[in-house]
Amino acid sequence: MAGALAHADAQEKVRLIKGRKVNTMAYSDKVIEHYEKPRNVGSFGTQKEIKERTDIGVGLVGAPECGDVMQLQIKVDQDGNIEDAKFKCFGCGSAIASSSLATEWLKGKSLDEGEAIRNTEIVEELSLPPVKIHCSVLAEDAIKAAIEDYRHKNGIDHDHDES
């Protein structure tokens, strides 16, 4: 035991002493995976280009002062289904994972199905602790904002009077 202890690195040492796994990271493995192996990162074009395309909806939520900014883009096909989604995020690991997960879930869904995604589902999937729940709320906001943007561009505002 003493020999193993001497050669172990810091985390392994603590595990050997305590005889149990030490959670040195505040993040679940899933959260870390979204950062280490990002999927759907990017944009369908420059800000200017996206503004003009009617097949793309963009949701930009949060604020730099809050330390959280999410940009979610959806590419919608002729049948009104989300065929592709991309994200960019300025924020903590949980925020990055939440917006990344959102893009994964949106692909292949209809706009209505996308709108039905709840932040609580994101919390569960990523095992977010209470202090990080607001990241999932922002991701839900981003999804809704992207769908709203697409609908607005295509004159199919949902549940609103034209005003």
Binding site: S43, T46, Q47, G62, A63, E65, V69, K88, C89, F90
Partner: peptide, 23 residues
């Protein structure tokens, strides 16, 4: 590479001028 703010910066957009909708 993940940051929308960096994208905007590269495109020459002034981030301070954007009206953010903070929640």
């Amino acid at each position: 590479d993940l940051s929308p703010l960096y994208d905007m910066h590269k495109e020459g957009i002034d981030i301070t001028k954007i009206e953010w909708q903070a929640h």
